[in-house]
Design a protein around this nucleic acid. Structure first.
Length: 647
DNA sequence: CTGTCTTTA
């Protein structure tokens, strides 16, 4: 996700996590803005970008698009906007904007730009728009680049700055040059602030990179000078296995050898455990952090001297034909492998041990497939339409998504009434485009007026948006957690169970200790509270009443169906389900309260499905089959000729 | 029999 972040020129700009980590003291994990340390003149002039100031300003003056290649930590994010401000780009009421991944997110951009654009399609208030970390290629940086290219055709005075990693710069140059006169775009390179990193590869491929990682970490500790170790694996299960393996070796550590402090790092951990990985190790200890991709770009850990890279990553892909998303483990790109290695060279020279042969590195794809080519496009296309881009055939994608994905997204927008047969946004489509949630949730919120259950639907919307509400510890604690969870269980299914958990959380003081005692995630619930508050504002803005359902769970379930009627499924005697659309075999996620129970009616609706080894459905609620027909008859799939039928 | 990442003026 990416966004426009607006700030007053002359104040400290929004640094990226990466830039900030070198410019601020200590560890940085959150995306909270730092203080004003960087405004000290001497510190500013020490940054590598300072030497390039004149050149940069020359390029912005003379080229429409400046592609800025700079290593993380060179100061581009914090300094460039100030240079532009000093050079007068913010004079006469002009605005310099900067967008970033992992910041205020995208709908707000679309919505904000949309509100202005509908009145001011050429963004004439903006003199310069900077897209930061563009090489990460999030859906919204890609959309913004496309929109900016279009705007520049109509208003050449707009300046665009695209900050990028080395490998991707030529691609951005081609993109902005194509179809434009010469001199449209240029590349500026800034020197980084990196120390050399020695790269080592295995001679032979390994059949078990977790075992190999344990081996390599152990040998680094015995044979290499002091400095912390960062290991890249793909997920929680691997991380736990690696840490267990290392823990088993600890008693064999020779007398006098450096001792090890072991840490896991992945997004599923409670915040205090995540923060622990950022604490410096005690004297006489070497810190080993075994991490997912979270440490590749999202957070920076100081003091890493050794990186161990499995060469794999988990990535989400989406199949528009089956509407199935899946999480698969694939080899990383060369760009990722280089980025991971770079984590060893931030404070001194370092070393990276790749758990695969050099020949494998050469055969890796140069970059990761951009997210826009492997995601559900329903929301992105709704947002493009809200920006007035109705003719998607003419939109210049940085990377084109599959035609099938565009088509399916349009179909689903038409089916849900967001887009009319003429291809333009409907009245409700315009409103939903402003809502920071997926279309199905927004439909549910709008329908709550008819079912008089806005208060509860708001909570359900927020709770289905956050993840991992119920904590599942291993072993005996897991069984205990299961007992705790039963206290919230609703007969009707997971949506109401989530509602119960939320209500209990707010009733009992929103405390972290209460969550711990009831096997709930404090982080997830706190997030749900804040999302709910935001959604409530949207409902009030659209004049939707926030009524209590007075304990009528049937109304609530019918309202959920209004958003999710395409996700109906029928129970089978073997405990699996069949999807109403497509008759696909579905397995209930083990986290569901309906995992071991047959729904009385034999029918459910589900929030989402995902392909793992099997096709799994998550967040289920029991429904009556005729509730599906009520919505289903309005929708007939033109491609397959299959409507929603309930047999 | 189970969570890569991110997450909306």
């Amino acid at each position: 996700m990416s966004s426009l972040q607006f700030w007053k020129p002359g104040t400290v700009g929004p640094g990226s996590t990466l830039d900030r980590a070198t410019e601020a003291e200590g560890s940085v994990i959150s995306s909270a803005p730092i203080g004003a340390a960087v405004s000290i003149q001497a510190a500013r002039e020490r940054l590598p970008i300072f030497k390039h100031k004149e050149k940069l300003l020359y390029c912005v003056e003379n080229y429409g698009v400046t592609i800025l290649v700079g290593q993380t930590g060179c100061g581009k994010t914090t300094q460039l906007p100030q240079y532009l401000h000093e050079a007068g780009w913010a004079a006469d009421g002009n605005v310099i904007a900067c967008t970033q991944p992992r910041r205020v997110a995208a709908t707000s951009v679309a919505a904000r730009v949309a509100t202005e654009t509908l009145l001011d399609p050429l963004l004439s208030r903006y003199s310069v728009v900077m897209i930061d970390e563009a090489h990460e290629r999030s859906v919204y940086t890609d959309l913004m680049l496309g929109v900016l290219k279009k705007i520049r055709r109509k208003r050449p005075s707009l300046r665009v700055i695209v900050s990028s990693a080395t490998l991707d710069a030529a691609g951005f140059l081609d993109y902005f040059s194509s179809g434009n006169p010469p001199g449209e775009a240029t590349i500026v390179s800034l020197e980084g602030r990196m120390y050399p990193v020695h790269i080592a590869h295995l001679e032979q491929p390994t059949p078990d990179y977790v075992a190999k990682a344990i081996d390599v970490v152990w040998n680094i500790n015995l044979q290499r000078s002091s400095g912390d170790v960062l290991v890249f694996l793909t997920g929680r299960e691997e991380i736990d296995r690696c840490l267990e393996g290392l823990a088993e070796l600890l008693p064999t550590l020779p007398r006098g050898a450096t001792r090890l402090k072991l840490h896991a790092l992945h997004s599923g951990l409670p915040m205090d455990e995540q923060l622990a990985a950022f604490e410096p190790a005690e004297r006489g200890f070497r810190k080993v952090i075994v991490s997912t991709n979270i440490a590749e770009a999202s957070v920076t850990i100081e003091g890493i001297k050794y990186v161990v890279d499995s060469g794999f990553v988990k990535i989400r892909t989406y199949n528009p034909t089956t509407s199935l998303s899946s999480l698969s483990t694939i080899p990383v790109s060369r760009a990722s492998a280089i980025q991971r290695a770079g984590r060893a060279g931030r404070t001194s020279y370092g070393a990276c041990y790749r758990l695969y042969p050099a020949s494998t590195f050469e055969s890796l794809p140069p970059t990761t497939q951009p997210e826009i080519t492997r995601t559900d496009l329903t929301t992105p296309i709704l947002q493009l339409k809200s920006l007035g881009i109705d003719d998607l055939m003419k939109f210049e994608w940085v990377s084109s998504p599959p035609a099938e994905a565009v088509l399916r997204a349009l179909e689903s927008l038409v089916a849900s009434g967001m887009v009319g047969e003429d291809g333009r946004l409907t009245v409700i489509g315009e409103k939903v485009a402003e809502c920071p949630v997926e279309v199905n949730i927004a439909r549910m919120l709008f329908a709550s007026k008819d079912y008089q259950c806005g208060e509860e639907i708001l909570t359900i919307a927020a709770m289905t948006t956050v993840q991992d509400v119920f904590v599942i510890p291993d072993g005996a604690a897991g069984a205990l957690a299961e007992l705790e969870r039963r206290k919230f269980t609703a007969e009707e299914g997971d949506h109401l169970t989530l509602l119960n958990a939320y209500n209990a959380f707010t009733r009992y003081g929103r405390s972290s200790s209460w969550c711990k005692a009831h096997a709930l995630s404090f982080r997830a619930l706190s997030r749900a509270v804040s999302i709910r508050a935001q959604l409530k504002k949207y409902m009030q803005r659209f004049g939707l009443p926030i009524e209590n359902c007075q304990g009528d769970a049937k109304r609530l379930r019918q309202c959920i169906v209004s958003g999710y009627w395409r996700n109906g499924a029928k129970w089978m005697a073997d405990g699996t389900y069949r999807s109403v659309r497509g008759n696909v075999v579905l397995h209930v996620h083990p986290n569901s309260v309906l995992f071991t129970r047959k729904p009385r009616s034999g029918w459910v609706i589900f929030h989402e499905m995902e392909e793992t080894k099997k096709t799994q459905i998550r967040i289920l609620t029991e429904i009556e089959p005729d509730w599906l027909l009520e919505y289903g008859h309005k929708f007939h799939d033109k491609r397959t000729g299959v409507g929603v039928s309930v047999r």
